[in-house]
């Protein structure tokens, strides 16, 4: 029996003394990516009798896609304003004073179960000394319209898996693609979700500012986003992965597909955006050759990610 004890101790000592530690995989894939799970208040605006609370993931607004929850409280009546006609318009003022918007949902529907107005905004730039973002929120209570504006801060998106790109298509229209999911990819099959939007140029001259018809964006319908993920690092020789699925639009308006990442690191999602007739709007096919030592070629349309 004593022999057995000695044996167990000896085994334990040797096993505990591995020279190289095993990688903690869960920690490994979470080091580069910050996951945003909880909705927190970004800001709260008080105007007259009303308080507007804006919530977003992590309590911040970032460049790229942001889901936005909005609550309006009548402080006098001490109650939430439900089923109002709420409008939401982000406006960016650049260094020259030009005012533009970004893809957003203008009319925010009310979610009765969650008790908030739900929308999104795809901010195209970060706030800095020359770029400022202003929110224009309109609502109706007791047949009276209110309009409140408030300056917000758009922060840099450090998680490249929520990266975005803006481009002009071959049809001279302005398009936006923003990654929404996965926030923290794995070396696995990942469901890839992206929003695809376009700018609708105004047909009428501008009315009083802010005139929503001058800042109109819409979800691109029934297009296809062809996907070819590759590792651009020269030593990876244009490495790719199998079994990827191109992104197509689902009932939630977003585009869904599958991307397989074969290892962690830098990946480029090479895209080709095609309309419902299969006409290419933007993007080029990339070489499928394995070319060690040469930096991988990218499509005209791509988004870099990292995990």
């Amino acid at each position: 029996m004593r022999l057995l004890h000695l044996y167990v101790i000896a085994v334990f000592v040797v096993v505990a003394s591995c020279t190289i530690d095993k990688t903690d995989y869960e920690a490994e894939i979470s080091t580069e990516t910050t996951e945003y799970i909880d909705f927190k208040e970004v800001t709260s605006i008080t105007s007259g009798d009303y308080t507007i609370s804006i919530e977003a993931l992590n309590g911040s607004l970032y460049k790229g896609y942001n889901e936005i929850h909005l609550k309006i409280t009548n402080t006098q009546a001490n109650g939430d304003l439900e089923n109002s006609e709420v409008t939401f318009l982000p406006i960016m003022t650049d260094v020259n004073g030009n005012k533009v918007s970004c893809p957003h949902e203008y009319n925010l529907p009310y979610d009765a179960t969650e008790e908030y107005y739900k929308g999104y905004a795809v901010f195209t730039d970060e706030s800095d000394s020359t770029v400022s973002w202003q929110l224009y929120i309109g609502f109706v209570d007791n047949d009276q319209s209110y309009m409140i504006d408030h300056t917000i801060t758009v922060e840099e998106q450090t998680n490249l898996n929520l990266n975005m790109t803006a481009f002009t298509g071959n049809d001279n229209e302005q398009y936006f693609i923003a990654l929404i999911s996965p926030q923290s990819p794995s070396v696995a099959e990942n469901d890839l979700v992206a929003g695809i939007y376009k700018y609708n140029p105004p047909t009428d001259p501008a009315g009083t500012f802010p005139d929503p018809s001058q800042f109109s964006y819409s979800i691109v319908q029934n297009h296809t986003l062809l996907l070819d993920p590759r590792m651009p690092e020269p030593s990876m020789g244009n490495h790719s992965s199998p079994n990827n699925v191109d992104l197509t639009q689902q009932s939630d308006g977003l585009y869904h597909g599958v991307v397989n990442y074969t290892m962690t690191g830098n990946w480029t999602l090479n895209f080709i955006l095609q309309d419902e007739d299969g006409q290419t709007i933007k993007g080029t096919e990339v070489s499928t050759e394995f070319t060690p030592g040469i930096e991988g070629e990218k499509s005209e349309l791509y988004i870099d990610i990292l995990f």
Partner: peptide
């Protein structure tokens, strides 16, 4: 495990099992 180091070592390493 395999971990590959990019030529620019400041870049993120690449990992897989």
């Amino acid at each position: 495990e395999m971990r590959m180091y990019p030529q620019d070592r400041s870049e993120r390493t690449m990992f897989a099992y």
